[in-house]
Amino acid sequence: MAIAPAALKSKDFVSNQDVRWCPGCGDYSILKNIQKVMPELGVPKENVVFVSGIGCSSRFPYYMNTYGFHTIHGRAPAFATGIKASHPDLSVWVVTGDGDGLSIGGNHLLHTIRRNLDLQLLLFNNRVYGLTKGQYSPTSRTGMHSKSSPQGSIDYPIDPISFALGAGATFVARTIDVDAPHLQEILHRAHQHPGTAFVEILQNCVVYNDNEWLEVEDRKTRVSAALALHNGEPLVFGPKEARRGIRIRDGVPSIVHLEPDENPESAGVAVHNEAHESPSYAFALATLARPDFPLPIGVFRAVEKPTYESMLQAQIDDALAARGPGDLAALLHSGDTWTVES
């Protein structure tokens, strides 16, 4: 009879290594919340693997008392693919950043998402290169002044959510480093999702790009600066006295001002549907950006399709059923052979 293991606690997931992020870094909050959520997932600690690439966020595995692999720049999703495809029983978490995941590792991120392995991709987006000391990143705003763009960046940024949707992601969400309840909820949802779960975590770099997300991190400004996504509920934001909603016509979102008692749906405000058949709806949401629109926070899309590892195993099972287990001697003697007598 299996003996129920002693319930795990957050501290069981804390490694013996000193955390070496800058004081005030958003990563501390994310680490604490992941360590808080881990025991709640019901996964034995030895079955959890954290995989990362290079960058500040990629130091993450060293601080988790699970299996961990700090790999090379941009390629964590590929390493994670190998781990998950060979061992579907493991709970695999990739931690990456905007530079690691969307610049040097853009290709691996794209292809890992489209394969839909059942793993979690957490992209910490602080819109700057931290570990290399402050260059603009692929998510930095055009015009950003940084060490490598003293006259302002002339790159147009990429939006992680649009990228993931474009790659065919089955689960796409955005959350905030310092919003503990929301972050925990999204981590739970990402883990429950049977397929690749892509989560953009807005994260503050206190040294090189401080307050980049202040509007949505600060509870006072968030009410107008953020759009909370709740499945089945209308896309409404703003203070009670000045409620607004998002209407989507021909794929183009616009803002609707609502009277205090007005029914948002009657006013044409879209009702959030994570499982919308077409990704166009989620894509329209992804285009909502500051300062013209509130920034959507929550689950953009959650649909299901078979995972890569399950289809791979099914092919092995089919081949075994059709041909029996592989026989090396039979293989070597297959086809035309001839015998030389002594």
Partner: peptide, 16 residues
């Protein structure tokens, strides 16, 4: 997707 991914998935499997 590419040569780097090919060795990376292999190393991931080796780690596992």
């Amino acid at each position: 997707e590419d040569e780097m991914a090919a060795i990376s998935v292999a190393i991931g499997a080796a780690f596992a």
